[in-house]
Design a protein around this nucleic acid. Sequence first.
DNA 1: CGTAGTCTTGAGTATCCTCAACGAGGGTGG
DNA 2: CCACCCTCGTTGAGGATACTCAAGACTACG
Lengths: 225, 225
Amino acid sequence: MPTGEQRGGGRALPDGQPCLRASPLEALDSVGAVLSCRRGQELYRRSDAADHWYRVVSGLAKEQALLPDGRHQIVDFLLPGDCFGFGTRDQHQFAAEAVVNGTVVIAYPRREIEMLAERDPSFAMLICQLAIATMSRSQARTLTLGRTRAPEKVGSFILEMAERMADRQADAVTLPMSRYDIADYLGLSVETVSRCLTKLKCRGAIRLTDTRCVRILALADLDLG
Amino acid sequence: MPTGEQRGGGRALPDGQPCLRASPLEALDSVGAVLSCRRGQELYRRSDAADHWYRVVSGLAKEQALLPDGRHQIVDFLLPGDCFGFGTRDQHQFAAEAVVNGTVVIAYPRREIEMLAERDPSFAMLICQLAIATMSRSQARTLTLGRTRAPEKVGSFILEMAERMADRQADAVTLPMSRYDIADYLGLSVETVSRCLTKLKCRGAIRLTDTRCVRILALADLDLG
DNA sequence: CGTAGTCTTGAGTATCCTCAACGAGGGTGG
DNA sequence: CCACCCTCGTTGAGGATACTCAAGACTACG
């Protein structure tokens, strides 16, 4: 399955969005397959064999759940440095695809990961921290999804992206994804996301330099207020 | 911190609800402190030092997020065999407390866990699977929280509990928690939970033997329908 | 320059929440 | 033993939030 043109497998790509954090999976870069993806390109589907783990080098990917009637929910956005595709079962629970053109992802054979983890306890611990970090992210999101109003959802989304992308300063973010993706991430309709953004803008909490570029003016108004 | 009367530290307590699954943390039972808790008894609060991991032996516990204005969201229900309290940071992200009287929990020092994991790679892998399992559970919940109607939420909650408790047969569950807890778990109001249950009952999907005892009649009507 | 997808705004509606009331246990104290 | 209180659970009425349907402006891309 893993095919794609070669490209720098390490971290720090000077152009585009480089991978900021160190990832334990980098130790396996020699056996990883580099994938360069177009927007919408699928990495795997819902019941595909989960025989690879993935790491985002640049760009943006998403993991999403699909319902038979067409509804879909984005489970996680994957930014440069993030790893995904691991689960307890042998089949993927969700589907995954690239969100922007030129997204570079590395696929690591699961067997290689397990073998290295068996040999190297400190590597196993790093894998463990990876899973725990993903878990914490997911758990923090249950609060946003369950107990907040739409403007709070959008506000905390902006804050989350500002923190995770660390876009130079933390007071400005360029959102790489569409309003539709934001809606599917927050469990809202596209229209509501749009309305909330204009509402936050009128309220003076944010400024929209561009459609996708958000400048945070009043941090307190976004932080669950 | 961990104090409490002694009681069978292993698995399989013949009375009450026994621990069904094997847990890697059991390897550390010799250094674990057994806690017997009353309903509502706190195990830790939001910014407490995260120097212990926990395992539920019997009863039921919950991990919940609290907002300053009083809203709260249950992040996870912890059933016998489940482990919790682990995160990436040194402080707990959520609060945890017992849901029913007589809940027995074991607290393991985090340092001991890390030391054992450093020595024993297979133990580290088990810990890893623990984190991944919790992550999968949390991610599956984002779909329910984000993209389903209230009756679907309640339906999938019944199914989740039926599966996780494995209450003899899978077609009957005795819910140990109150309607308020169910509401806080699903991001609904108590009234809506109650109304959805009566609606599911009228629809012929479930039967309520007791207030807390649910018999599943039409599985398809609960499975996101 | 045309087309397809994205984004925004408006109007009407459905879902769910809030407020309120009431009945049913369960524990406590007189 | 019974009265009392408290929490839990259910149901109803009204209202707020967010969705659906619809239309139009803007952008990217071929």
